[in-house]
Amino acid sequence: MRSGFLFAAVLAGALVVPAGPASAHGGDAPDATAYRTEVTGLSMSVPGLSVRAVEAGARLELTNDTGRTVEVLGYRNEPYLEVRSDGTYQNVNSPAAYLNRTLDGDTPVPSNADPAAAPQWQRISTDRSVRWHDQRTHWLTPGLPPQAQADPTRAHKLRDWSVPLRQGVTTIEVRGTLTWEPPPAAWCWWLGAAALGLAVTALGRRRIRWVSAVALVAGTITFGYAVTRASLGAEGTAPAIGAAVLALAAGVLTLRGRTPFLLLLGGAALAIFGGLGDAGVFHQAVVNFPGPGWLARAAVLTAAGAGAGMVATGLLRLPSAAPAPISSTA
């Protein structure tokens, strides 16, 4: 009973883990994509000013430590964002302020948003760093690019892009490239997850404490992967963090001889939220993770396979529900 209460407490606490600091501009970021957006540099060197692509290329991030105001210009070269020494401001009269709210740019632009109107600045953050979607860096046409349709086996550079900035009367360009990359062999990663699940189940049939060790290792890997993504502003990581904590708790409690039902619950959470929830990384080349793509895929494979094996072990080890024998009287 005490184990059940402890497990429920861990579940409640884990599922309210914050997903990381909010960006100055809300929006959506994919777990994985076929398009690699890279910043190659600025048209001129400005000490203290840096721009990079983040969230698998879904947004650009500008950091202004120059001590002077830097403007990001919109699609009609109108003032869109200003990053000042006291924070970030958005021009509500810029159409980009609405188009850039989502990755697809499908937010309706109100009639009062006029790029020719005088800027009306609204403070949106106290940071000197801001993230935003920028359609100039994305592939917006439905379907595969023509180059990828003609040869889907290799990467294709689609175009060079630029985003204009302004500091005083000086215009600076952020320059970069957009590349389509072929998908990985997803079946290999799914096969690996299935093989791991079978191996963990086989271990569980011999000795359940070995599966407890697997739960601890898999929970640690999933926790590290999810927290790393959360620290970069990735969205939707709280369920994976919660699942990792549950898997760790289940491993500890099962190692101490508690009911295998806890192992079943922890494994289900790990497989669903740590594995299936991020399975898009198996199917796309560019992942929302700072390390190499194969490392992210290995972490998701571990969560899916180990979680499935924990579930199977828990089911096999549940006490039998067979009725007690009826005693006879002489």
Rank of each mutant, 00 (worst) to 15 (best):
L178D: 00
T137K: 05
R159V: 00
L178N: 02
W180V: 06
H138T: 01
Q147Y: 06
K157G: 14
T153S: 14
G176L: 03
A194F: 13
V174K: 00
S162V: 10
P182M: 04
D160I: 06
G143N: 02
P145S: 05
L158N: 00
A193Q: 03
A150E: 14
P142W: 08
T177V: 11
L144C: 02
H138R: 06
H156T: 07
P146D: 05
D151R: 09
A185P: 03
R166Q: 15
H156S: 09
T141A: 15
G192D: 02
C188A: 11
A193E: 01
G192P: 03
H138G: 00
T179V: 13
P183Q: 12
R154A: 09
T171L: 10
W161K: 03
C188M: 11
H133N: 12
L140S: 12
E181P: 00
C188F: 11
Q147K: 12
Q149K: 15
R154K: 14
L191P: 03
A186Y: 05
S162Q: 14
L144M: 09
A150N: 14
W139K: 08
R166A: 14
T141Q: 15
R175G: 07
L178R: 00
A194H: 08
V174M: 08
R136T: 00
Q167M: 15
A186Q: 04
G176S: 04
L158F: 02
P152N: 12
P146I: 04
H156N: 10
P152F: 11
H138W: 05
H138V: 03
